[in-house]
Design a protein around this nucleic acid. Sequence first.
DNA 1: CCTGGTTGTGTACGGGCGTACACAACCATC
DNA 2: GATGGTTGTGTACGCCCGTACACAACCAGG
Lengths: 182, 182
Amino acid sequence: MARRYDPGRRERIIDAALRVVAREGIAGLSHRTVAAEADVPLGSTTYHFASLDELLVAALRRCNENFARTVRESDCLADPGVPLAGGLTRLLEEWFAGGRGPAELEYELYLAALRRPALRAVAAEWADDLGALLASRTDPATARALVALLDGISLQVLLTGGEFDAAYTREMLGRIVDGAGR
Amino acid sequence: MARRYDPGRRERIIDAALRVVAREGIAGLSHRTVAAEADVPLGSTTYHFASLDELLVAALRRCNENFARTVRESDCLADPGVPLAGGLTRLLEEWFAGGRGPAELEYELYLAALRRPALRAVAAEWADDLGALLASRTDPATARALVALLDGISLQVLLTGGEFDAAYTREMLGRIVDGAGR
DNA sequence: CCTGGTTGTGTACGGGCGTACACAACCATC
DNA sequence: GATGGTTGTGTACGCCCGTACACAACCAGG
């Protein structure tokens, strides 16, 4: 039966799940497709993840970590000399520059929380983490609104197939930020 | 074979599809489930809608119409005496007062456009229609941003399972609106 | 009344799915 | 090196799916 010693198989399954979702969407995710993608036996996926929800939770969490690292490594937000709205706009611009793919993947997992209560906690973490990051440059309510507006603008781009408009984005984020000072 | 004369069967199938999606999500929508819900033979659903995408397009369009009618009938936006931000907040408040159900249904269909290009045009219509409605009270860019922020705030509520916060919403919408005047 | 075309149905096929479970491989203990 | 517990696999079952298609019901023109 060829059982291999394979630590980190769990992680490889999560990676495979992300590739499957990126390619075919959550609708195309099944124990079988992810097993094939990760090149592990079918039983292995059900063994490590009792349900697809569990696998999705792990995948979304991994996504969040990747995004958080990207944000932290980018200096768009760190430098207090750069206006907050401008930094956020640049961040989003870089993100969309990578094409629809990555953005679609992250949002699909994030939005899946709408129908899957198991994902809600992770989705909330994401919003909170980003909010906390921004809160160091403004107040919590404003930070939350910035996250909401970023989500809304990104969705408009992704859902309607439109283009990302940096000037417009900067302007509107600016209105939220500036409103905090009055 | 009992073929009935049944005009409006197409419409009844769309209604049934909305009920199915409301109850079980898009994942639970199939030719069979919708046929059972509409109490028509299986072949009837494939006859009227060649693919599920086609059915989803019809369902989303119907949703849009319902929402547009609700907005038009509500006087939250019509009265120029009411501040725009306040009117929108009240509209959203009434919407959420109906429970998660209706909001979940509309957003699930709307967000499905992320992965289904066939729905993009209808999703774009929705955003444009609402934008056009708001544009009569402000400029187009501001109107678009208001829609984006409304989407973002609604999503935060629905995805994280949180509560709708009217005061916060009014405040942030207000910042977008007021920013237009400077 | 027949007849040819259109509209709508029932059924059956092949395929992918989640899940269960017997059992192989491994490891620690003696 | 036997043994008992744990970890991981292969396989098979039953279910639901989209799709195709023969054919019933209907309708209009002759």
